[in-house]
Computed example of a mutant assay.
Amino acid sequence: MNARLLALLLWLPTLACAQGFAGLGTDAEGFAPPDPAYRLTFPADHGPHVHFRIEWWYLTATLKGEDGTDYGIQWTLFRSALAPREGDGWSSPQLWMGHAGLTTPSRQFVAERRARGGIGQAGVTADPFLAFIDDWEMRATGPGIDTLDLTARGQDFAYALSLTAEGPIVEQGQHGYSVKSRDGHASHYYSQPAYSVSGTLNLPDGPVKVTGQGWLDREWSSQPLSATQSGWDWFSLSFDSGARMMGFRLRDTAGDFTAATWITPEGQAEPLPDGALNVAPLATSKVEGRAIPTRWQLKLPAHDLDIEVDAVNPQAWMATSFPYWEGPVRITGSHSGKGYLEMTGY
């Protein structure tokens, strides 16, 4: 059997396990469970955690062209493991997938890459930090992840961006232990939510110079969801006041689960428990034959937050091996600003 075909066949059972839906509630016997006593350590935790089943390096940016047009980009590298170990060559049980998205007000550009670990086609190193798949890169240009160069390309788009952190790394949940269900399912999770971004988008009509804000999420686990959870609605919001918020709703037949982190302009994080954040869809759009919520109301009474979140492009559909909605949003109401929204499992 052709080695690449074998790698593809090995990948297929885990395709749905790479991001938070459709399989992340299945048993993960033999893999490491998240530990609430664990404390994040850098730069080591910028790298892979091969004893855990799933992991991702996920960066989004809200951008603006010189003419005022809004854009958004996504760059994600997923690691999914067949076994909790390293390996050389084709014997490696580590599988990799890359997603790149570029959103304009009227178009959505999408690309996907897949790779098998151990053959040099994809991987991550912690120090100096580099995450790559084929010729897509998230590469540190200084210590840690404070400054990054980011590149990706698809059939009809590309981008090359430089990012500089303007605040500290944020630990999500309690010391980076992020609970995802009332049953106690969890992940290790941290963010760098305060990048300034500049660079160039290459679109069919030509290059576009852009500036804006970026947000990097790092998360790893083995079974982060409950078997009754079908997907999530995840928000990363940057307010004009300088404050930021991460919040999510996990849809569950036993009752939805929510969590949030409020981040001050100085980068101090306050984790907020299930129920503190109220998330309600206000309007849907027909996207690929599905009704997708593209306008939301979010309320966080602890910080007098009552906002509406609207998609820049309601058709920001990621038509990848496991399809989902992902795109930039505008914020109005008690707080104004921009952010990113990801919706899985619809």
Rank of each mutant, 00 (worst) to 15 (best):
L6T: 11
L6G: 06
L12H: 06
T14D: 11
A22L: 14
G23T: 04
G25L: 02
A32V: 09
P34W: 01
D35F: 08
T41K: 14
A44C: 07
H46Y: 08
G47F: 02
P48Q: 13
P48C: 10
H49R: 12
W57F: 10
T60G: 03
T60Q: 09
E66K: 15
G68K: 13
W75V: 01
R85N: 00
D88K: 12
W90V: 14
Q94Y: 00
G98W: 00
G101I: 11
R113L: 14
A115Q: 00
R116Q: 09
I119W: 06
A122F: 01
G123C: 02
T125K: 12
P128A: 06
L130A: 09
A131R: 08
A140P: 03
D146I: 08
L148M: 03
L148C: 02
T151F: 04
R153N: 12
R153D: 07
R153L: 06
Q155G: 13
Q155H: 15
L163A: 07
L163V: 04
E166L: 11
E166W: 05
V170Q: 03
G173V: 08
Q174Y: 11
G176V: 02
S178P: 00
G184C: 10
A186V: 08
S191Q: 03
P193M: 03
P193C: 08
A194N: 13
Y195S: 05
S196N: 12
T200D: 01
N202L: 14
N202S: 14
P207N: 07
K209G: 06
Q213S: 13
L216H: 02
W220A: 01
P224M: 02
T228I: 05
W232R: 01
F235N: 00
F239K: 02
D240Y: 10
G242E: 03
R251E: 09
D252Y: 05
G255M: 10
I263H: 02
E266W: 07
E266G: 13
Q268M: 11
D274W: 04
A276F: 04
P281F: 04
S285Y: 10
K286W: 07
E288M: 13
E288A: 15
R290H: 11
A291D: 15
T294K: 00
W296G: 04
L298E: 08
L300S: 07
E308R: 12
D310S: 15
Q315A: 11
A316I: 10
A319K: 10
P323G: 11
V329G: 05
V329L: 05
V329F: 04
R330C: 10
T332A: 15
E342S: 12
E342Q: 13
E342F: 12
T344H: 03
G345L: 10
